[in-house]
C-alpha cells in the first residue's frame, strides 16, 4: 500500500471509530496486516446493525438492509482465499454467501456444490470420429448446462469439419453452417482435454487453476486475475475469456452448480470445459456425452478396468491431438 493510501485508510478507520466504541479501539491498538484488518471490518459489519454503521464501507451507510447485506457479502467475498486453501467451514461460508448473493441480486435460487473428487477415479473421454455427424447437439447441451455467456455465444466445444483423407487439424473448418453430414467430410470435436501434464496450470501466476485428483483441470473464478497466460499456453485453444460481464437469462440458468464448474462467472476471468464437474462427480455423464445423438462420445473412469473407455483404449486404434507435446490429454480419438 502506498503512503498516501495508508494515511487515508488510517484516517478512515479513526473517523469511524467514534460511535462504535471498544471494538474499533481494539482494532487500532493491535498491530495487524491490511488483509486481516479489512476482513475484520467485514466480520464486524455482519454482527449487528450498529456495527454495520460503524465499520462497513462508506457506501453502506445509506440504503436498505438488503443493499447493506449485499455489500457485506461482496466485502467478504473479496477477501476470501484460494479454494484449495479453504477449510470445510470456509467453503461452506462462501457457498452460503454466493447463493445468497444470487438470490439478492437476481432473485435466483441456485445450489452450489463443493463435492470433491471420488476415490480411485480418473476421468477419460473417447471420441469416435466415424460416428460424429456434426449436428452440434453437444454444443447446445454444453451451453445450457454450463451457464455460458449468451451474448458472445461462448462455446467450449468446437466441431471441425474435415475433408475425407485429411488428418491435419489445420484443414478443419469449425465455422461450417449447412446441412450435415456433408458429402466427403468427417467431423472432429475438440474441447478441454484435461491434460495429465497441463501447460495451462504451469503458467498461472496466481495458482487459480490446477489439476484435481480425478484429473479434471479446474479454475477458481474468484482467484483468477484474467491475465490469459493459460489461454496462450494451451496448445488446443480450449480456454475462453470473459471480455464482458457474462449474461444468462434467469430462466435459462442451470441451478445445479459446482464451485469449480458451472457457477456464474464474472467479467475478466477464464473459463473452460470441466467435463461437467457438477455432473460427473455425482456419477452422471457430461452434458455433451448425454446429448450426443450418434454415440460418438464415451466417458468413463480410466481406473476401472471394466469401463467402456478402457475397452476402447485396449481394443481400438486410438490417438490424441499433438501427442508430441507430451501434454498427455485424457481425450482419445478413434475410428470404427
Amino acid at each position: 500500500m502506498s503512503g498516501g493510501a495508508k494515511a487515508w485508510f488510517q484516517s478512515w478507520l479513526r473517523k469511524w471509530n467514534g460511535p462504535a466504541g471498544g471494538c474499533g479501539a481494539g482494532l487500532l491498538s493491535k498491530s495487524i496486516g491490511r488483509r486481516d484488518a479489512l476482513k475484520m471490518l467485514g466480520g464486524g459489519a455482519a454482527a449487528s446493525g450498529a456495527v454495520v454503521n460503524a465499520f462497513a464501507p462508506v457506501n453502506l451507510l445509506s440504503g436498505s438492509s438488503e443493499e447493506r447485506e449485499k455489500a457485506v457479502i461482496d466485502w467478504k467475498e473479496f477477501f476470501k482465499t484460494n479454494y484449495r486453501l479453504m477449510n470445510d467451514r470456509e467453503r461452506a461460508d462462501t457457498i452460503e454467501r454466493l447463493e445468497r448473493k444470487y438470490k439478492l441480486e437476481r432473485n435466483l435460487d441456485v445450489k452450489i456444490s463443493t463435492a470433491g473428487p471420488l476415490p480411485n477415479v480418473l476421468y477419460g473421454y473417447a471420441f469416435n470420429l466415424s460416428k460424429c455427424k456434426g449436428y452440434r447437439e453437444c454444443i447446445r447441451a454444453c451451453i445450457q448446462e454450463n451457464n455460458q455467456d449468451r451474448a458472445s455465444n461462448m462455446q467450449y466445444i468446437r466441431i471441425f469439419e474435415k475433408p475425407m483423407g485429411s488428418m491435419s487439424v489445420e484443414s478443419g473448418d469449425a465455422r461450417y453452417y449447412h446441412e450435415v453430414p456433408a458429402e466427403g467430410h468427417f467431423y472432429m470435436g475438440t474441447q478441454c482435454f484435461q491434460c495429465d501434464n497441463p501447460p495451462c496450470v504451469r503458467v498461472c501466476p496466481t495458482g487459480a487453476t490446477w489439476k484435481e485428483q480425478d484429473g479434471i483441470v479446474v479454475i477458481d473464478y474468484d482467484w483468477c486475475i484474467g491475465c490469459r497466460y493459460c489461454q496462450a499456453a494451451c496448445p488446443y485453444w480450449a480456454r475462453r475469456f470473459n471480455w464482458k460481464e457474462p449474461t444468462v437469462p434467469n430462466e435459462e440458468v442451470n441451478p445445479n452448480q459446482h464451485y469449480l464448474g458451472n457457477r456464474l462467472r464474472k467479467k475478466g476471468v477464464m473459463e473452460k470445459c470441466t467435463y461437467c464437474i457438477q455432473r460427473t462427480r455425482q456419477g452422471r455423464l457430461p452434458a455433451c456425452a448425454e446429448a450426443c445423438p450418434t454415440g460418438a462420445r464415451t466417458f468413463g473412469n480410466l481406473l476401472d478396468p471394466g469401463s467402456e473407455i478402457r475397452y476402447i483404449l485396449a481394443h481400438k486404434k486410438v490417438f490424441r491431438l499433438k501427442e508430441d507435446l507430451n501434454t498427455e490429454p485424457k481425450f482419445w480419438y478413434y475410428m470404427d
Binding site: 455427424k133 456434426g134 449436428y135 452440434r136 447437439e137 454444443i139 447446445r140 451451453i143 458472445s152 455465444n153 461462448m154 462455446q155 468446437r158 466441431i159 471441425f160 487439424v169 489445420e170 478443419g172 469449425a174 465455422r175 461450417y176 453452417y177 449447412h178 446441412e179 450435415v180 453430414p181 485453444w237 445423438p293 450418434t294
Partner: peptide, 18 residues
C-alpha cells in the same frame, strides 16, 4: 442411417482462431 439435417447451434469461432 442417421439423416442429413441442420446443426442445432451456430458456430462461435473467432476469425483468427482455428
Amino acid at each position: 442411417a442417421f439423416q442429413k439435417r441442420w446443426p442445432v447451434t451456430y458456430p462461435s469461432v473467432p476469425r483468427r482462431y482455428p
